[in-house]
Amino acid sequence: MSTALPTRPVLHSEWIKIRSLRGTFGSLIAILFVTTGIQALTAAAIGQAEEGAMGEDPLLAAFYGITFGQIAAMAFGATALSSEFHDGGLRTSLVAVPNRARFYLSKISLVGGLAFVAGQIAGLATFLAGQSFMGPHSIGLGDPGALRAVFGCGMYLTLMALFAAGLTAVLRSATAVLSLLIPFVLMLSFVIGAGAEGMAEFLPDRAGQMMMRAEAGSVVGHWQGLGVLTLWAGAAVIGGWLAVRRRDV
C-alpha cells in the first residue's frame, strides 16, 4: 500500500506541471483574486446601502464572492487533470511514473493542497476585505460563526476543485466537466431550491455553503454540510481513480 503514497519527486513533478500551464496556474491564482475582488467590489458598491443589502444572512453575504471564486476553483481542478488527457499526455506521465495509484494520488493531493492554501487565504481575505467596506453593518472575526465560515469558505473552494478534478478524470475533458458542473452548481439549486427545500440542502453547493451560513439548514447542519460536499467530491475522486486505474492509454 505504501507504494501508492505520493513521494516528494512525484509531487514536485506535478507542481512543475501545474506551474507550467498558464490556464491552470492562472485559475489557481484566480481563486484568490476573484473571490476577494468580487467581494470587495460588491461590498464597496452596495454594502452600506441598507441593512442586508448584500443578502439576508450577513455571514453568507460576507462570502458573496465565492459564487465566482468557485468557478475558478472548478477550472483549476478540471484543467489540472485535463492536461493529462490531451495529446497522449497521460502516456508521457505514466512512462515517468508507471505506478498509477501513486500518480493519481500525488496529482489529487497536490490539486487539493494548492486549492486548500489558495482557498483558506481567499476565505480570510474575502471576509476581511469585504467587511472593511461594510461600515456600520460589518461583522468581525470574533462574531459567532465567523471563523467557522472563513474555514468553510476555504474548504468549499478546495472541495469544488477536487469535485471537478475527479469528474475530469472520468470524462477526460475539462470542457465537458465545466459545462456540466457550472450549470449544476450555479443553477440547479436555484431552480429546484424553492420547491424541495429539504433535499436541495444535499446539493454540493448548498451543502458546502452551510458552513458560511449563520443559521444552518433545516436538515443539514453547518458541519454536516461540509461532510455532504466532501462525499460529493470524494465520490468524484474515487470515480476518477476507477477510470484511471485500468484504462488503456
Partner: peptide
C-alpha cells in the same frame, strides 16, 4: 504526446 502549452524545458523538467 506533449502538452502544447508547456515550454520544452518545462516538459522535460517535470519528467
Amino acid at each position: 504526446a506533449a502538452h502544447g502549452g508547456r515550454t520544452a524545458r518545462a516538459h522535460l523538467s517535470f519528467l
